[in-house]
Structure formats: C-alpha cells, structure tokens
Design a protein around this nucleic acid. Structure first.
Length: 544
RNA sequence: GCGUCUGUAGCUCAGCUGGAUAGAGCAACGGCCUUCUAAGCCGUGGGUCCCGCGUUCGAAUCGCGGCAGUCGCACCA
C-alpha cells in the first residue's frame, strides 16, 4: 500500500499529475483470478481531482513501482491496477498459517474499547422458544467473533426477575396449583398458559403437597414467585448450556431496585430531564429525538420497565464498558430511541450503545409454516428444536443468515443428512481431513518438519492457500460489521475449496515430498475449519 | 399516519465500507466411485438486482420519491 502511495507521490513531484490529497488506498482481492492476487482502484479514485484519464494515472504509478515480491502488474478495465505476487509469497503465507496452528484466526489484542454484549435476556417466565434460539446463537457467535478479532468482551444476560410479568408467573402457578386441588379459579388475565406452568405446580405438589393450600393468598404468591423463578431460571440456563451458550454475567434486574433506579432518576432529575405530570414522573425523551416523553415512575409510585432499563444501562457504563451491544428482537425496535435518549440525557454517548435487531424466525416443516402463538403457549421451544435437528444444525441455520433478514428455518433441510445440508457439508470436509491423517499415519507417512510447500502447484491447492490467507481480513470485517453470518459463509466456501481439492489431488500414493506438503496443507485447512466452527459454536467431528 | 427491517435466479439467501462479465446452496438437466469418506466432485441452463428520479467517470450498493411484505408505535415487559 505504502509503495503505491510512494509511487503516486513520486509521479506528482515529477509533475505527471497533481492530486491535492491522496485518497485512501484500498486493496482488494479481485472477484476473478485473472485479475491478479490483489488490485486497487486508486487510479480511478484519483481521476477526478487529477483531471486525467485513470489508465494514464495507473500507468504512471506502476512505472514507478518496483517491489521484490511483485511478479507483475497490469492495468485493466477502466483503470484497475492488478498486482500479481511472486509465487513464493504464497508459500510463505502458508508456512505462517501452519506455524500459527490452532491460533490462526486469533487476531492481535486490540487496545480499543471494552465491549459488553447483552443478549437473549428472555423473561424467566417460561421456556425459550425458537426466536430466543436465534438470539442465543447469533449473540454467542458474535461474542466469539469479537474475541477472535482481539476485543475484550463480556457477555451478559439480563434477568427480568422483577415487575409485573413475574407477578403474573406467580399468579399463573398459583392458579394451576389450586386447579390441581379441584378448586375453581379464574385464570389470571395476563397469565402464562404453557404446559410448563402446570408442570411447575405439579412439582410443587409432589414436593410439598397441600402445604400452601391453607395459606393466605399473598403469602402463597410470594413463595410461588420464588419457587417458580428459581425453576425457570435453572431451566433457562440448562437450555442455553445445551445450545453452547454461556454467559460471563447473569445480571438480576432486582439488584437495581431500589437504589440504582433511584440514583439514575436522581441524575436525570438534577439535570432537568425528568418532570412531573399527572402524578407520574416523565423522562423528557423528546428532547433527544424520541416521539413522546416516557413515564419512568408511575402515578402509583412503581417504576416502569424503562426506569429499570435506564438504571441498567447506566450501571453498564459505570462498570467501565465503552461499547454496549444489545441484541433485541425486531419487535422491540421502537424501544431503541427512548433508551438512547435516556443514555444521552444522563450524559453518556448514545452512539456507545449499539442495538442489533434480530428479525423474526418462521419454522417450516414439509413446506408448511409452523404456526406459533405466544398467548396460548403453543410455540416450538428451543429444547424441542434441539431435540429435532440437533445443536449443530440449529446453530448454523440461525447464524447463516444476516441478522437483518427474516429467517425461514427449514426443519427438514436442517435434519437431512445429505449434501443439501450446509452443516454436514462443512463438517464432512473436516472429517475427511481427519480421516486422511489417520490413514497417513497407518501408511507410515511421517510428518515433515519442513514440508516442501512449493510443490503445491495445483490450482485447487493455490485456491485453498489464498482462501486461508484471507481468513484474518474476514474476521476483522465480520467483527467490525457485527456480522457472524459472514463466518458461516466463509467456512462453507473454504469447505467447498477443500472438497474440490480432494477430488483433484491425492495424498496417499504420491511422491513422499508432495504427500507431506499436502498433509501440511490439509492440516492447516482442518485448523481453520475448526476455528471457524468453534466461533459458530458448531462441533467439528473427527469422523462421520 | 409515523417508524424498523426486507425486496437480487423457480425457492432460500449472500454481495451493499460505489468498481471489472451480479454470486452460493437447493431445485432442473448431463457426466464422475476397482485407489485417502459419493454426506463428495465436474459441467449446463437460469436475472427488469421491486419501480422511478438523482449524485457519479462508474449504482444491486449512496440520496430522494413511490410500490409490496414484515414487525412495532403502553403509566406491558
């Protein structure tokens, strides 16, 4: 890059052309291999200010470039400069990848901001469903991705263990409990209808029988609230652990009440961003771009959900995180504006909160949409999904689409153990490599310390090396874009290059030096596949 | 009505930090297993990148305006 800048600079001092400020020089890997190993559109970028034909500029630049690693350059299309690397460069790259071993793909630590990623954070009032599953898969993959890119990341689950919905949970369990003793009770209006609530009531009876029957209702509700919460939370953690999702911090909303909520309100009150109206306290969020002002303390004195969330985000910043990433379902998008408003009102930078919205998931079975209804509790749970398609397929399917896209989840495809299924396609590549190693060992092909990598000249071999060499950039860009689906795509492409190689080149039964070089190559491929799959939370089986 | 996201091959989707002939998987069609896993490979066909206008040397990509779908617009969480 620098040598392009130097050449341009030199051309200018020689008066060939004049540019006031050099544009950023962007090197990219061209879409076709006929366009060289990398290319720049620098000449076209400069064409306007230089008032000169981009091809002429390109010519002036390449005349002034001489680098030892450069095989040749050419001008193509409207003014691209294509660079061809000397062949040995690629083998140096491969040697570097092999030397890095399983660490290849872990980028140097960044000194930049500490990032906190909060995701799932489903209410502990029932089992996780498939929508939460997408959040869980994408969130955990994003955390892994950011860490690989060198960021310091803390992952967190916000437990909504305070407020109405928990009271509704207790009331629902209460109603089921009484029903099981043949009492007629009115089911709470906003109660939870799921089977799991009945199961909870049954477990309570199994353990303590009619112990709570004669209690005062309020007392019973208090006890049931704690029992149910404990049980739901444990189930949640179990489901997530089975889905390769683990959190550094489980943050209880209750811990914010009442002190943190009070402090946050005080801060806002002192800087004049809270006012009283109709007996309630309102956040002046319209001053920060929201549609309307929002109630933080209701007229009955109870804080709203927003109040707790304001305190929570303040707490996050106070803990020293510079960047907060929240992964929310798309149905919460209307909430972003008011939280950012509150953040700004408290004196933090709203840009330091990034909310990633996750679009909805639709399940398809036999080509038919699987209907879901939250109200009646009739929805496919994450546990059922894992049961049906397995963790690997479920995670990969959730991650392979961009977060912005609604996801059509084809259950039959996810289950199929065939070439149609991208998960198996990738895992199969890994298993094949492991199998090769087992057989090579039996055949007594020793692992070379200094394999003769320059023997790798087949186009499929070169393609594999180039693909692996691009892994670092891919991680960097995917992390920057918060786009874990790029890794899913990358590893699928790498697997494809491998399968192609596998059908063209043999390892056993060729010259010993070549066999050793190829073993070293596929060993590196296996490491990269492992690394990428590990980021996605998908296993890399030894055999299939 | 306001806002979010989406609209690209028959289907599901990448590509969007402006660049070369717009890609992948599935589906369709035709080939490849006496040698390391055929859960694989090779090949063929397939496009109004929703529409219009604008910015630009150059637009699937950026801006504005439409159209269609989605989700949301609480003193619920």
């Amino acid at each position: 890059m620098q040598s392009i800048a130097n050449a341009a600079q030199q051309a200018m001092t020689e008066g060939v052309f004049q540019i006031e400020t050099l544009p950023d020089i962007i090197l990219e890997v061209p879409p076709k291999k006929e366009f060289g190993d990398f290319a720049t559109n620098f000449a076209m970028q400069s064409a306007k200010t230089a008032k000169m034909n981009p091809r002429k500029i390109a010519e002036a630049i390449i005349e002034r470039m001489s680098e030892p690693w450069l095989e040749k350059t050419e001008i193509a299309g409207p003014g691209f400069i294509n660079f061809y690397l000397k062949a040995n460069i690629i083998y140096d790259q491969l040697a570097g990848i092999i030397a890095a071993g399983r660490d290849y793909g872990n980028l140097p630590k960044k000194n930049a901001a500490k990032i906190q990623v909060e995701y799932v954070s489903a209410n502990p009032t029932g089992p996780l469903h498939v929508g939460h599953g997408r959040g869980a898969a994408a969130g955990s993959a994003l955390v892994n991705l950011l860490r690989a890119a060198g960021y310091e990341v803390s992952s967190e689950y916000y437990i909504n263990d305070a407020g109405n919905q928990i009271d509704n949970l207790a009331a629902s369990v209460n109603a089921r409990y009484l029903e099981l003793f043949d009492q007629t009770v009115e089911f709470p209006e906003n109660g939870y209808h799921g089977q799991d609530i009945i199961d909870t009531a049954k477990r309570i009876i199994k353990k303590d029988g009619e112990l709570y029957l004669k209690m005062a209702e309020t007392e019973r509700l208090t006890i049931f609230k704690e029992l149910a919460l404990k049980e739901k939370l444990a189930a949640l953690k179990e489901d997530l652990a089975a889905f390769n999702v683990n959190f550094d911090v489980w943050f209880s909303e209750r811990s914010l009440h009442p002190d943190d909520v009070k402090t946050a309100c005080q801060v806002l009150q002192e800087n004049g961003n809270i006012y009283e109206k109709d007996g309630a306290l309102w956040l002046k969020s319209t001053a920060y771009g929201d549609d309307k002002d929002r109630v933080v303390i209701r007229d009955n004195g109870i804080p709203t959900y927003l109040a707790a969330d304001i305190a929570y985000h303040r707490n996050k910043f106070e803990r020293g995180f510079d960047t907060l990433i929240n992964i929310w379902g798309a149905d919460h998008h209307g909430y972003i504006c008011r939280v950012k408003a509150a953040i700004e009102a408290m004196g933090y930078k709203p840009d330091h909160l990034e909310v990633l919205l996750l679009q909805m998931v639709s399940l398809y079975r036999d080509g038919e949409l699987v209907k879901m209804s939250k109200r009646t509790g009739q929805s496919v749970t994450l546990a059922e999904l894992i049961e049906e398609v397995g963790t690997d397929a479920a995670r990969f399917f959730f991650i392979m689409r961009s977060l912005d896209s609604q996801l059509d989840f084809d259950l039959d495809l996810a289950k199929s153990k065939s070439s149609e299924n991208p998960v198996y396609y990738i895992q199969y590549a890994h298993a094949r490599i492991r199998s090769i190693f087992r057989q090579a060992q039996e055949a007594g092909i020793a692992k070379a310390n200094q394999p003769k990598l320059s023997l790798l000249t087949d186009e499929s071999e070169l393609a594999l090396i180039k693909k692996m060499a691009a892994y670092g950039e891919e991680i960097e860009y995917a992390a920057q874009e918060r786009a874990p689906h790029r890794i899913a795509r990358y590893v699928h492409e790498l697997a494809s290059e491998f399968h192609s190689f596998y059908n063209r080149c043999r390892i056993m039964g060729v010259d010993q030096d070549l066999a050793q070089a190829r073993l070293a190559l596929v060993g590196a491929v296996a490491n990269v596949i492992c690394h990428a799959l590990a980021m996605l939370g998908v296993s890399a089986p030894e055999k299939m």
